[in-house]
């Protein structure tokens, strides 16, 4: 048994997933309270140089051709060995299409408690308390993080990815995998997302434009902003009706319900047919010259600046911030 915090470093096709940094940020805070180290678990093939910027004390890399791609049952066997051998205080997974199923399977296999939808872990005088969001974030629950070892599946929002990054590459220790055999699940191929169009109901960042944009040419400004912050452009109905954006980008009663982490509403009044479809967004920020526009009733933050004045400046600042 140890007080270490293990972090499953998720990666997909040679890229560390953003959630991994969130996990590292949480783990650092937890380890400070528990008095252990943060250990990153990296499973894959030829991956030991992948984890250059994760903020962990050390990385345990398990390298094997069978681990080259995520296959649930094979990954599960490797992790089961690592976790049961060292019994850390907690193992953090992303609550994602990789982490969620590993955490569930391991929880039953190893008989360890699992906490899902976890947003934060708080340290109160050395005791760790999980804080999870249920009901799509409408209620929060908290309780003592089960001991001695807890599996935790984390959602983004509680930590900034920045806090989980480091400029110092961590020491990497390569461990030999147990004798691995292909299981009952095999990866056949990857299929690239269709270049057709995005599904706005699944996007994490939406930069949405309304009639306040005034003409088709101005859409370009918004597209640049969306690109800078890594989001996608969506719209209210008048913009789509005019043919300035395809119907697939329509938010609202006649279009799609969306639930992004950030919904940036530019020149959208917040009519009922539009508003009803954005209420599941985590944060709405509205830009609208009319201080009495109903969009401000559902937005968390707002500004009454002219969007045409604000957007180019904002794009520039976002670009700078990303450098």
């Amino acid at each position: 048994m140890s007080q270490d915090i293990y972090v499953i470093i998720e990666h997909l096709r040679g890229q560390i997933a953003d959630i991994s940094y969130v996990l590292c940020a949480a783990a650092r805070q937890m380890a400070a309270a528990s008095g252990g180290n943060v250990v990153g678990l990296l499973l894959g093939h030829n991956v030991k140089d992948l984890a250059q910027d994760v903020a962990v004390d050390r990385v345990l890399a398990v390298d094997d051709p069978l681990l080259a791609n995520f296959v649930p049952d094979v990954y599960q066997q490797v992790l089961a060995n690592l976790i049961s051998a060292s019994a850390p205080r907690a193992v953090l997974f992303g609550d994602t299409s990789i982490g969620a199923e590993l955490a569930g399977a391991l929880s039953v296999q190893l008989g360890l408690p699992l906490v899902s939808y976890c947003r934060n872990v708080r340290a109160d005088d050395g005791r760790l308390t999980y804080v999870s969001q249920l009901c799509g974030g409408k209620v929060m629950v908290e309780g003592e993080l089960p001991a001695p070892t807890a599996l935790v599946a984390m959602v983004p929002g509680g930590y900034q990815a920045e806090q989980g990054k480091s400029t110092q590459p961590p020491p990497v220790e390569t461990v030999a995998p147990p004798a691995l055999a292909a299981g009952r699940i095999t990866l056949k191929q990857y299929i690239e997302p269709e270049s057709g169009d995005v599904d706005i109901s699944k996007e994490a960042i939406l930069v949405s434009v309304g009639r306040g944009i005034q003409n088709a040419d101005n859409i370009e400004l918004v597209r640049e902003l969306a690109e800078a912050i890594g989001g996608v452009v969506s719209a209210s109905r008048p913009v789509v009706d005019q043919g300035w954006l395809p119907t697939t980008r329509l938010v609202g009663k006649s279009g799609k319900r969306v639930k992004p982490r950030l919904y940036l509403a530019l020149g959208i009044s917040g009519a009922p047919e539009h508003a009803e479809a954005i209420t599941d967004s985590q944060t709405i920020i509205a830009v609208n010259t009319d201080a009495s526009a109903p969009i401000f009733d559902i937005a968390r933050y707002g500004t009454t600046l002219d969007l045409l004045d604000l957007v180019p400046v904002l794009t520039e600042k976002v670009r700078q911030a990303k450098q």
């Binding site: 997909l12 096709r13 791609n69 995520f70 296959v71 009952r184 699940i185 095999t186 990866l187 056949k188 191929q189 990857y190 299929i191 690239e192 997302p193 269709e194 995005v198 599904d199 699944k202």
Partner: peptide
């Protein structure tokens, strides 16, 4: 949006 085709 990346899709993995898996056989089970």
């Amino acid at each position: 949006g990346l899709v993995a085709e898996m056989e089970v």
